[in-house]
Amino acid sequence: MLAQQIVNGLSLGAIYALIALGYTLVYGILAMINFAHSEVLMMGSFAALGAAALAPSMFGTGVLALAGLFAASMLAAGALNATIERLAYRPLRRHSRLTPLISAIGVSIILQNAVFLWVSDQSLAFPQPLSGDAFTLPGGAQISALQALTLAAALALMVLLHLFVEKTRMGRAMRACADDLEAAGLMGVDADVVIAVTFFVGGALGGAAGVLYSMSYGSTKYNLGFLPGAKAFTAAVLGGIGNVRGAVLGGFLLGFLEVLSAGYIPNGAQWRDVIAFSVLILVLLARPSGLLGERVAEKV
């Protein structure tokens, strides 16, 4: 039934949206696709798992365990993303646009293999700090505790991001850099600092998504990031890459598309990715810069 699909679509879309924001924030400033972003969210989820191993109470239930998982994942993913930028992208910033992309793919492969070889090639059980039952919403749809948490966390992070980008001095500098990096430098903005903050923020949002995604599977794995990363990248392009509202819109649209195709089309569950990506291609044929994207010429 539709109400249930809406709940499912919203909570899946919220995860895509959080990840898509990381792609779009970085693209907005550097016009670069951070292909390592999917591994950043995977590493965040492993950092949460590692923190739980050190503090076994995080394997329990409750707000404290939950907060611990998010804090560990978001800090680690943010710091990792900023470090990747510093080591693997910044030295290449003045080269052709293709060079940092290759570097990003390289980082992505290195991170996956590092976890595969040194941590585990298996799925590892992820803490399940939520204990509540599903609520029944007016209209009859069920919302699980995890779905409710996903929606609440995503909404809270999006509001915080909005306030940061629109209301703070650093957020204004980020937008100025996204408009014209060189001109921002002429105004006294240290672009390296702004770019590092952008990678940190994008990585931290990915880390939050990593926890939510791992909780939904009950486990994490070295290749956890690949699928949601690819889909969230798609969502960012669908919404108009570089555009923050577009990433949120694209994330939710993709979530709905998947859930609705699984729910209403015979054998849809198997076809959901095909359908979702076909819609993406159709949208891009009609609007090459995405739903909310500006003309590409404006950026370059």
């Binding site: 001095r169 204004r172 408009d179």
Partner: peptide
């Protein structure tokens, strides 16, 4: 301070925000 060729204002920032960027440091 350089006012570059082609002005290079920040098009998606408001006029006020552009001025604030001038005072960034």
């Amino acid at each position: 301070c350089l006012v570059p060729e082609g002005r290079r204002i920040f098009p998606r920032l408001t006029v006020m925000e552009n001025l604030e960027m001038g005072a960034y440091a």
